[in-house]
């Protein structure tokens, strides 16, 4: 699309103090070269409407703060060029399937609660080793590939807004927590499948995913939660049919003692803390 002269932002506004339901507000601003949706919101806040609220931080698609419903799609505002939308009318609403705190700020706490409930961390028997490591957990590149893609998640909530099940069902954990749970289930250093299964085998688990595929299409980082969820289902179904046996978590490899630093590799700088 050729760059427009002006861009109209149709923004979903909500003020919890006003007792009024959310309403649309149109604001037209001049387009500047390379303007993202987030840039546009900043211009609006600086020049037109100082009360406009949203969440953002890094401006480079890394922090996952600025997930919004832009022209009907869950996207990162910082990662969305006005020109790629193909229209000079930009509708911006808070991510659906989360309560609205104010204007474009969704309440992501249910997502993080569901995330925490699925134990997205290494679970091992050797707790002492985890806190005071004597070596490294051995992992091959192939074992790393099993979860690396899923570890790029920035918890922006775009997948949760795209998921049809999340549109009605608060009991469903959602794509992000499930994908992150799977990320640890298939980590060769982890031994917590049996523990996580206590939650995943219930209605909190992946059973209400019907592969509409939207979470993977919406993910701004290519994490592909739908793939993680289907692979998780395979694990759980095979587990029920007694066809799955979780491998033992990887062993601790002692730190090498006889190694010499290569001449061209400098010493690490002194710790700053």
């Amino acid at each position: 699309m050729t760059a427009p002269v002006n861009v109209t932002f149709r923004i979903r506004r909500y003020d919890p103090a006003s007792q009024q339901p959310p309403a649309w507000e149109d604001v037209t601003i001049p387009y500047t070269h390379g303007m993202t949706v987030l840039d546009g919101l900043r211009v609006i806040k600086e020049t037109r409407s100082a009360t406009l609220a949203w969440r953002s931080s890094c401006r480079m698609g890394v922090c996952g703060s600025c997930g919004m419903f832009i022209n009907g799609h869950p996207r990162l505002a910082c990662n969305t060029q006005i020109t790629e939308l193909g229209t000079s009318l930009v509708t911006v609403a808070p991510l659906p399937n989360f309560d609205i705190i104010r204007d474009l700020v969704p309440d992501l706490r249910p997502m993080f609660d569901a995330h925490a409930a699925l134990m997205p961390h290494l679970i091992r028997d050797d707790v002492q080793e985890m806190y005071e490591p004597t070596g490294e957990y051995f992992q091959t590149p192939h074992e790393l590939e099993q979860f690396l893609q899923f570890s790029y998640c920035i918890k922006c909530g775009c997948c949760m807004a795209a998921c049809p099940t999340m549109a009605t069902d608060p009991a469903y954990s959602g794509p992000m927590p499930l994908a992150q749970s799977h990320r640890y289930n298939v980590d060769s250093r982890d031994g917590g499948f049996g523990t996580r299964k206590q939650v995943l085998a219930t209605e909190k688990g992946p059973w209400k995913c019907h592969y509409a595929g939207e979470c993977s299409q919406a993910c701004p980082k290519g994490v592909d939660p739908a793939r993680a969820i289907q692979l998780m289902k395979r694990q759980l179904v095979f587990d029920y049919l007694r066809l799955y046996k979780q491998p033992c978590p990887s062993k601790v490899v002692p730190k090498p003692t006889e190694m010499k630093r290569r001449a061209d590799v400098p010493e690490a700088p002194a710790p700053t803390l």
Partner: peptide, 12 residues
């Protein structure tokens, strides 16, 4: 455990 069981049987 119920949903894991029911879904597996749903597929079978």
């Amino acid at each position: 455990m119920r949903d894991q069981r029911l879904w597996t049987w749903h597929v079978l």
